[in-house]
Amino acid sequence: MGIFAKIKNALKKTKDAIAYRLNKLFTGGVLNDDFYDELEMILLSADIGSETTESILDELKTQIDKKHVKKSAEVRILLKEIMHDILDFELPKEEYPLVILIAGVNGVGKTTTIGKLANNYKKAGKSVTIVAGDTFRAAASDQLTVWADRAGVRIVKQGEGSDAAAVVYDALQSAKSKNTQVTLIDTAGRLHNKVNLMEELKKIDRIIDREFPEAMRLNYIVLDATTGQNALSQVDLFNEAIDIDGIILTKLDGTAKGGVVLGIAGEQEVPVVYVGVGEGIDDLEKFDIDDFVSGIVDAE
């Protein structure tokens, strides 16, 4: 049990410890092996993953050489720039009518996110229809109805166990007839390695294309910030199924840093669009790269 006790102690004040270590790291002097080891630890602890961490550090070392950087404080700035570059994408300008399909694995916060998105668009003066496409999970549409009421928008739903594709089909007809500007489609949580469930999602995606061709389409995947390297596989397989336009990163109000999106942005070129930072209806923010990067390499 020696190993347990040791780790327990090491983690006692994780948050303070990381802050302390960060400050120590970037105010210390020498850029030696210990410096890079420590930096590696910090990146790994943010779920950046060993592969991406390695490539970030390689790039950092190259730039340090090139720019003759000697002070660790300057390294922090360089590091932020590198991470910023990885995450920087140009997002498409939204046009209306707009259909947003929300997908993701179970329990990441899709339904809550839709409530928040609906609220955002409503506040921006858009007409919104929410579609209760999760016909599988018990009481999912009840949950979504509460969010629709809170945001003050329409919801189209059918009974539990009904065909999700049929619900979407009907909802699109209704959204079109009501000239809805923004249609937000909730879907059941599905693990990305379940072929049948991914086929169902593809079908929903095709139906939207077919029934509402005049609308602008955005497909978002919701990722839980506490998720580790599996998020890469999630985005990979969801992207393969329905062409993902962006990521909504939820639960960033905890202690998880969500660093896995760096690997995703680097490898699969899928940008983060929004972040979820709480359970309130206003707790959805546009993704701010600087804030995000700062959360990983700056001490709070």
């Binding site: 983690l11 006692k12 693990l191 506490t226 580790g228 599996n230 998020a231 840093k257």
Partner: peptide, 26 residues
Amino acid sequence: MTGQDAVTVATTFNQRLDVTGVILTK
């Protein structure tokens, strides 16, 4: 699927509640 933060979460819950066991989902 939880990443690095699993230790922080588990440690905190255990410290406050002295849990008796763990269930892994998904």
